[in-house]
Nucleic acid binder design. Sequence first.
DNA 1: CCGCTGGCGTACCGTACGGTACGGTTCGAC
DNA 2: GTCGAACCGTACCGTACGGTACGCCAGCGG
Lengths: 216, 216
Amino acid sequence: MPVTIKVSEETFTPRQQAVLTAALDLLVENGDGLTMTAVARRASCSKETLYKWFGDRDGLLTATVQWQAAKVRMPVVDRSHLNAKALRLSIEQFARDLLTVIVGEVSVTLNRTAVTHAAQEKDSLGLIVLENGPLAIRRRLKPILEAGRDARLLRFESSEDAYRTFFGLVVRDVQIRLLLGDKALTQSNIEANIEVDVKAATDQFFTLYGAKASNA
Amino acid sequence: MPVTIKVSEETFTPRQQAVLTAALDLLVENGDGLTMTAVARRASCSKETLYKWFGDRDGLLTATVQWQAAKVRMPVVDRSHLNAKALRLSIEQFARDLLTVIVGEVSVTLNRTAVTHAAQEKDSLGLIVLENGPLAIRRRLKPILEAGRDARLLRFESSEDAYRTFFGLVVRDVQIRLLLGDKALTQSNIEANIEVDVKAATDQFFTLYGAKASNA
DNA sequence: CCGCTGGCGTACCGTACGGTACGGTTCGAC
DNA sequence: GTCGAACCGTACCGTACGGTACGCCAGCGG
């Protein structure tokens, strides 16, 4: 009988978190080599316990992704005094956070897992990743963008479009290439350029949406 | 004994193509439900023939992806008289092609399959998809961009960066959301907006890289 | 000390699926 | 007509893995 995993606010005991950590490690190491037996062995627990706690394999997977994805936390941006410089720094910070997360090995693994999962009419993992990745950034960025518009620092019709353009400028083809296993993109290779790319993306964003731009 | 699949120029007999079509259909329908038995039944052939022709399951998968991916053909762009209007139309056309391909059900399936594959230290499918998707566009677009620069219609340092920005402006978060199974993005929903998005992306690209832009 | 509960380890079961073997059929060559 | 090649259909094997059952131990309340 599968145990229903609460979608949010789920509190795991330390022991359970250790199990989830083991599961995540296996996921990162072996790709999809996440077998119940392997998790049990890695976590030094019995399969029966796994089933008791997480219901079935999908439950364990969901719990792992959910738990890990929720760990991604964005730094709070000071929104009180919104001059041009502060706005730019905020947006730059978002770009940096977004890129850093996306490039990380854990993120790649989680996204791959979720994509694989979505290829089987099971979209729950996809939603979780989506919710805690792009959408989380969006929720935090949109108010900033709108505040920027209200302060006449930015110009755009739809904050949704502005956000999505921002996403595109920052992420470009990096994520899909990582997911597809492009060897030309090594971790170090990206991380070395991350600051340059972040600056460039921010510049471009302001070129498109800055108050003085002939907005498209 | 696995048969080596030639990476290019592979010519399949009509019968083999029918098998590959069946495999692709199954892939699109059932996600990863691509079992050898299912393909054999769907294509009305014997499993033994499948193994004879494609070596093993991976060979069949590779042949399917390879064969289908190679079908994506970009229209040739007239590069002879390169005035501003022609350049814009070319780039707009690239944007339209890129977006149309990426949004298609087949592309989503192929990308998902390749990502799943890449999650198992097997990156061959990823490379094929990469090669026939983004990189194919890049190969065709770069000369246009450089011609545009030579004609003083565009300004950029690196055509590579220009291409990647173009990719980001066009694709934005559409592809990853589709791969993750975001229900909010229905096929019709996207296709209805495709022209608007293409225009917007092209405008933005010219804002960033047009000759008159204060290039970032 | 007794018994109960929670959890470990392991053996076990059922099934799905990759891969193989083999008999039967069609078809072209001679 | 005979032979052989190609191929279909299906039965079969081995294995990996999800899921279950059970024996055992530790801790703890009484």
